[in-house]
C-alpha cells in the first residue's frame, strides 16, 4: 500500500498531486462500479498518461548519450563508430531494424548483444566485462540500460522495419516462434499461455495478445520502458528475462541466442508499428 502510494505521488506540485488523486479515485470508482474490462483499461491508460508527463527514462537517455560519446575501454574510443545496423555511427532509426544479421560478428544480434559486440570489437573490453552489468538496481547504475534508452529513444516516431530475409534471421525467427509456444517449467507455461489470446490479464495488468498485429505492435513499440514500481529504465532483454522468471523457466542468459531469437520473433511481428520508447509503465 505504502509503495503504491509512493508510486502514485510521482509528481510533487500541487497540480500534479491533484492529478494523482483524481487518478487514484478513478481507479477506486472503476473497480467499485465494475463496469467491465474496457472501463478499467481506459482508466489505466489515463494513469499512464498522467505518469508520462515527465518520463524519468529521459534521465537514462541523457546518460546513455554521454556514455555513447565517451572514450572508454582499453582502446579509449567512443562507441560512435559502432554499426547498429544502419551503418557505422547511425543511431537514428537503428532500433527499428533490429535484430539483424551482422557479417562482422557473423551473428544475428539484437541491440544489447550488438552493443556488447561493439564494446568488445571497438573499445577492447573483455567479453565478460562488456556484458556483466545488464540491469540496474538500487545503487547500481547499468550503462547498458542507459545506452539502450538513448538508442531506442532515437527511433521514436519511426516504424518498425525488421527485414528478416537472411537465412540466419529466418532461423532465429523460426526458433523464436517455437520458443513462444514451448510449454515448460513447474507451471507448464508457454509465452502463448499468457500472450496468445485476447483479454488476458495478471491482476490489473492487461496482457497483450502478441499473436495479433495491433497488440503485438503496441506492446513491442513501448519497450524499453521506465518501470515506476522499480524506478528503473528497463531494456527489452530485461523484459524477456523477467517473463522467464515469472514463468519459472531457467534464467534467461543476457544476450543468449534464445533471447535474441525470441526478440526476433516479437520484433518482426511488430513491423509497421510506430516506436514510442522508452515508454512508461506502472
Amino acid at each position: 500500500m505504502y509503495k503504491a502510494m509512493r508510486t502514485l505521488i510521482k509528481a510533487a506540485t500541487v497540480s500534479a498531486l491533484i492529478t494523482a488523486a483524481i487518478v487514484s479515485s478513478a481507479f477506486a470508482q472503476s473497480s467499485l462500479s465494475n463496469q467491465g474490462g474496457d472501463q478499467a483499461i481506459k482508466e489505466i491508460e489515463r494513469y499512464r498518461q498522467a505518469l508520462g508527463d515527465g518520463n524519468p527514462a529521459e534521465l537514462w537517455e541523457a546518460r546513455g548519450e554521454d556514455i555513447w560519446k565517451q572514450k572508454r575501454g582499453p582502446k579509449m574510443v567512443s562507441l560512435e563508430q559502432c554499426d547498429l545496423g544502419l551503418g557505422a555511427g547511425v543511431v537514428k532509426g537503428a532500433y527499428t531494424v533490429l535484430p539483424k544479421f551482422f557479417s562482422d560478428s557473423d551473428k544475428v544480434e539484437d541491440l544489447e548483444s550488438r552493443l556488447v559486440t561493439c564494446m568488445v570489437m571497438l573499445q577492447g573490453f573483455p567479453y565478460d566485462q562488456a556484458k556483466k552489468n545488464p540491469f540496474g538496481g538500487p545503487d547500481n547504475k547499468s550503462d547498458m540500460e542507459a545506452l539502450v534508452a538513448y538508442i531506442s529513444g532515437s527511433s521514436r516516431g519511426m516504424k518498425m522495419n525488421v527485414t528478416g530475409n537472411h537465412p540466419d534471421e529466418k532461423k532465429y525467427y523460426a526458433l523464436g516462434r517455437k520458443m513462444f509456444f514451448h510449454r515448460g517449467g513447474p507451471h507448464d507455461f508457454s509465452c502463448a499461455s499468457c500472450h496468445g489470446a485476447d483479454g488476458q490479464r495478471i491482476r490489473l495488468q492487461a496482457l497483450p495478445n502478441l499473436l495479433k498485429q495491433e497488440t503485438a505492435r503496441s506492446a513491442y513499440t513501448t519497450w524499453p520502458a521506465y518501470r515506476v514500481s522499480q524506478g528503473e529504465a528497463r531494456s527489452f532483454q530485461w523484459r524477456l528475462f523477467d517473463c522467464f522468471r515469472q514463468q519459472r523457466f531457467p534464467e534467461l542468459e543476457f544476450t543468449s541466442d534464445a533471447s535474441i531469437a525470441l526478440t526476433m520473433f516479437l520484433a518482426k511481428n511488430a513491423n509497421g508499428g510506430v516506436m514510442n520508447a522508452p515508454a512508461i509503465k506502472r
Binding site: A11, T13, D53, G54
Partner: peptide, 16 residues
C-alpha cells in the same frame, strides 16, 4: 520554494 519529504517518489518530476 518548496520543502519536500520522503513521500515524494524516486526520480521526481516537478512542474509549475
Amino acid at each position: 520554494s518548496a520543502q519536500w519529504g520522503p513521500s515524494v517518489s524516486k526520480n521526481p518530476t516537478l512542474s509549475f
